[in-house]
Design a protein around this nucleic acid. Sequence first.
DNA 1: TATGAATGAGGGTTCATTCAT
DNA 2: GATGAATGAACCCTCATTCAT
Lengths: 201, 201, 201, 201
Amino acid sequence: MSEIENRYSQKEIAVFRGLFALAKDGRRFSSIKVQDIATAAGMGKGTLYEYFSSKEDILSGAIFYALSGVMNRFEQSVDDTLSFRQILERFFDELDGDVPFAALSMLIVSMSPEQRAEIQTRGQDDLKLLFSRMKRAEADIFASGRRRGEIDANLDDNFCGYVIVSALFGQTAAHLFSCQKCEHRVSKNLLVEMVCRTLRP
Amino acid sequence: MSEIENRYSQKEIAVFRGLFALAKDGRRFSSIKVQDIATAAGMGKGTLYEYFSSKEDILSGAIFYALSGVMNRFEQSVDDTLSFRQILERFFDELDGDVPFAALSMLIVSMSPEQRAEIQTRGQDDLKLLFSRMKRAEADIFASGRRRGEIDANLDDNFCGYVIVSALFGQTAAHLFSCQKCEHRVSKNLLVEMVCRTLRP
Amino acid sequence: MSEIENRYSQKEIAVFRGLFALAKDGRRFSSIKVQDIATAAGMGKGTLYEYFSSKEDILSGAIFYALSGVMNRFEQSVDDTLSFRQILERFFDELDGDVPFAALSMLIVSMSPEQRAEIQTRGQDDLKLLFSRMKRAEADIFASGRRRGEIDANLDDNFCGYVIVSALFGQTAAHLFSCQKCEHRVSKNLLVEMVCRTLRP
Amino acid sequence: MSEIENRYSQKEIAVFRGLFALAKDGRRFSSIKVQDIATAAGMGKGTLYEYFSSKEDILSGAIFYALSGVMNRFEQSVDDTLSFRQILERFFDELDGDVPFAALSMLIVSMSPEQRAEIQTRGQDDLKLLFSRMKRAEADIFASGRRRGEIDANLDDNFCGYVIVSALFGQTAAHLFSCQKCEHRVSKNLLVEMVCRTLRP
DNA sequence: TATGAATGAGGGTTCATTCAT
DNA sequence: GATGAATGAACCCTCATTCAT
C-alpha cells in the first residue's frame, strides 16, 4: 500500500479524500462543484488544476486511487490460517477504513462511459499489474476456501469473484434505494452471510 | 399494468421511453440534455415542460413509472405451479421487456439524495400500495419456495428479498465496472444461479 | 365616448379591461403573461391573436383606448358654470372611473421607446383629432380659469398643460416609490391643491 | 458621498454606471439583457454574478446606489446663504451629474412590486439613515424658505416634499409620454418654476 | 507554487406565437 | 370564430477552466 501512497503527492491524496468525503452521503458527482472539492481538500481552486487536468480527471484519479487501496486490502487478506468467512469479515471490516466504499460506488457510477472504458485500459503497467495480483490473491483465497470445504469445488474463480463484486455493489445500490432501511453493520453481516451461503457446497 | 399505463398520458410515456433509451447504454443523467430527451421522445423541448416541471421531475417520474412496471411484473410472476427457480427465470427474462433494467439502475443512482428521500414517501396511495402488493407477492413466492425445499426455511422474507434486490443492482453495477465483460444472457443465468444457491437450504 | 367604445369590439374591450385589472396593483407589463391577459379577459389564449398581432400590440391598443377615454373625459369637463378647481376635482374624481389611472401609468412606462414613438404618430386621423380636441378643451378651461382669476394670466396653455400632466404622472410615480404612504383620496386632494396653487396668480 | 462610493467596489460601480447608461434613453429594464449590462460595464457576463445574485439584484443595487447619491446631493444643497429657488436650481442642475435621473426613474418603475416593498425596508442602518438625514435637510431648506417668505408658512414639510418628489417624477413621465417634446434645460426651468410657484405664499 | 477573480460556453427554463381541430 | 397543445427562440444563470499575480 505504501508503494501506492508513494505514487501520489500529499496534495493529490488530500483531493481524493476530499472528494470521498463529499461523496460519502450519496451526493452525485455532478452536483459536487470543483470549488467544493478544493475546499474539502483545503486548497485553492486553481491549485487543483496544477495536479489534475479536469474535473473528470479528478474522478478518474480518485477511483483509481481507491480501487488500488481496495485491491491491496484484498491482497493482504490472504491468510492461510483464517477461514474463508473470517477473511471476508476482515476484508469487509477494513473496507471502509481508508475510503468509504459507498462513496467509491457513487463515484464509479458517476463515471462517463468513456471514462469507464478508459480506466479499464489505463496504466497498463499499473492497473493491470494490480488486477493480476488481485486475481492471484483471489485464487489463493478461493483455493483455500475450497480446501476447507467452505466453497463448492465446482464453482470456478470467475463465479466466485463475480459473487463478491456483485454483492459489494449490490449492497450500495440497495442502500440507495431499498424498501427497508438497513443498518451499515447489518449490511456487512448480510454481505458475508450472502457470499458464504452462495459459495458453500 | 394497464392501470399503471392508464395513469400516464401518451406524451409522458413517450418521454419516459425516450429517457430510458438514452440511459440504456450507461449514459449518466447529468450528461443527458433536456433537448436529448425531447428529441428521443419525438417532441419539442418546450412540450416537455407542459408535462413535467423540471428535468429532475422527468427523472422522478420515469423511475416511478418503471418501478411500477417492475413491481407489477414481479407480482404477476406468482405462479404456484412453477418452481422458485422458474419464477425467477421468468421474472428476469421479462425484466428488460418493458424498460431496460440497466437504464433504470443508472437513473436510480442518478437521483439526488433529496429525490431519493422524496420518492420513498411519494404517492402514499400509489407507491405504498404497490410496495405492499409486491411484498405480498414476495411472501407468496418465498413461501412456495420454502414448501418446495428450494429456500432454506430459516431464512425470513427480509433476507430473501434483500438477496434479490442486491443481486439485481449488483449485476448492473458489476456490468458498469467489472474486470471481465459479461454477456447479458450470462448475467441472467448468473443471477438466477446466485439467488438460488444463496437461498437454498 | 360612445364613438370610441364603438370603435372596439366587445372582445377587444374585454382584453383591455383585463390588462388594466392586472396592471392596477403595480405589476409590470413584462411580468404579465399573455395567458394572464387571456384569463383576465375570459377567453382563450389563441383568441387574443385573432384581435391583436402581438403582446405589444395589446399594450399599444390598451393605452390608445385608455388615453382616448381620458381625453374624452377631459373634453367633457368643460363647463363654464364651474370654477377651475371644480373642473379639476370632477376630472380627477372620474379619472379612475373607467380605467385605473395607476394602471395606465404603469403600462405607459412599460412601452418600448419604439412604441412610444409610434403611438405619437399613430392614427393620424384618430389620435391627432383627439389631441386637438383636447387641446381646445384645455384652452377653454384655462381661459375660463384666467377669466375667473384662478390662473395667472401670464401663464400660457403649454405651461398649464404641463403642470397637469406632470402632476398626474408624478402622483403615480410618487406612489410607486415614496417615503410616506399616501391615501388615494388624499392624493387627489393633493393633486388639485398642487395644480391650483401652482397656476394661481 | 465618498462614504457611499466606498461602500461599493469598483466593479459594482461599473455595473451600475453601465446599467444607467443603458436605461438613459428610456429603454425598459426587461429589454436590457444581462449580457448588455456586462458589456456596458466592460466585463464578462459571469463576472456580474460574482457581485450580484441575479439580474433583479443588479436593479435593486443600482437604484439603492443612485438614490443614495441623490439624497446626498440633496443634503449637500443645504446652504443658508442661498434662496430656496437657488437651492432648487443647484440641486436640479447637479441631479444628472452622477446618474441620469431619467434613467433612475425608468429603473424605479421597472422594479417588481416585491422589490419595491423590499427596498423600503432594506438596510435599516443604511437607507433609513439616509432618509432621516434627507428629511432633516429638507426640513432645514423648507424652514429657510419659509423664513425668506418663499414658501407659504401654512404648508407643512410633507406637502413641500411631496411637491418636489411629484415634480421630479412627473417630469420624467411627462418626457416619456407627452404631447410636446421638451428640451431638457427647459424642463429644469419648468421644474423650478413649478415648485416655487406651488409653494409660494 | 498557490491562488481566486474573471470568463463564456452551455444548459435548463420560460413564454409569445402558431395552427390543427 | 375559438381554442390550447405544441413549439423553439431567447435568456438567465452556472460552473469548469484559465491566468495574472
